[in-house]
Design a protein around this nucleic acid. Structure first.
Lengths: 191, 191
DNA sequence: GTATACATGTAAACGGTTACATGATTCT
DNA sequence: AGAATCATGTAACCGTTTACATGTATAC
């Protein structure tokens, strides 16, 4: 139901085409939800069939025609209903950690390299979110100070998550580089 | 490929039945990966068909027979290959944040209540992870100090994540309870 | 010439969840 | 008497991803 909710939510801000919706996803909620183009079109068709949205076809000069969707009264109801739904506890899926725990017996350097590479990815993500806060492309969607605050908090959640990941990676690398029981380090120093 | 990798990984620690595998998932990697019983059985059959695992049927006295799976040579190869696979950047799916950003115009109390309820869930999760660190049911799987360190770091990742969530929730609640521009608070004081 | 942006979509495959089925034993 | 644990599995469904298809306009 989350995809549906997100689409209804975006349409409640302003009428939008499927293509533009994809850009909204990538540009704003990407740090906690993603959707592909085909998913969006499919859901839009379903919502239309249910009468939650209505379409206006706008001829594009030169460009292809756009189908701009907006909420119907029933769609606004569906949004309110979704916003009221209680959520079951979050389930994280973190493939790197999975690899990590089973890679314990790999050469230390290999493990360290994996963590380093992952850290790079997280850093890149972090820079991306930071950029979003500065250029307020997302925040400009906000129609009230409160909405603005909420969107900002959401991006900051992404930043906080990146920082937590980076902190953990740093801890892990440091700890795994310390030779167990101090033996290896000693051996190395005296070689 | 993560489910497959995890199963191969567990089997590399010791031969295990499908049922017991489910318990391993729930008891150890649950904070970053989950699998259902049917998923596990399905994958086990697939791995068997590919020759990555072999089965021994152990008659259970009173209890149903168990089918204990172990890695073949080819299975060990598959595990090594999976461990070597580079991962594409992590995609988070966080339904609460999605609701959160579109719930901006709901009554402040409603938003606050949502955050509070979520915090409770995170706290419960945190207590669970803490318990796991203390009773070392998971850590006992470890066959070397290094493996032990890695598993411990993985659980600590879960703890760190919980703490990051809690910190964010606290920030969000505080910030959203401050009346915008200080007007509302003033009005209330003088009513 | 090649790639990217614009804009719509379909089809197939993959991965995960839910519901159902069986049947003995042990705990409350 | 009813529920939980042990232990296996199947079938249907749902949501997500990937690949394919079409066609114009603009930028490098």
């Amino acid at each position: 139901m989350s995809l549906r909710g997100a689409i209804l939510g975006f349409l409640s801000l302003e009428p939008t085409s499927g293509y533009a919706l994809k850009q909204r996803f990538d540009g704003s909620v990407q740090s906690f939800w993603t959707a592909t183009q085909s998913q969006i079109y499919r859901e839009l068709h379903a919502l239309e069939a249910e009468g939650a949205v209505e379409v206006e076809r706008l001829p594009g000069e030169g460009k292809p025609d756009r189908k701009v969707y907006s909420l119907t009264k029933s769609g606004r109801g569906a949004l309110a209903k979704w916003l009221d739904e209680p959520l079951d506890p979050l389930v994280l899926r973190h493939p790197l950690l999975l690899q990590f725990v089973f890679a314990a017996e790999l050469p230390p350097a290999a493990l360290d390299e994996r963590l380093a590479r992952y850290a790079e990815g997280v850093l890149a993500m972090r820079r991306d979110y930071e950029g979003r806060l500065e250029s307020d492309a997302i925040l400009s969607l906000a129609r009230s100070p409160r909405e603005r605050a909420v969107w900002q908090l959401a991006i900051e959640h992404g930043l906080g998550w990146c920082d937590a990941e980076l902190a953990w990676i740093a801890r892990a690398r440091k700890q795994l580089s310390r030779a167990p029981k101090g033996r290896k380090r000693w051996t190395r120093r005296t070689r």
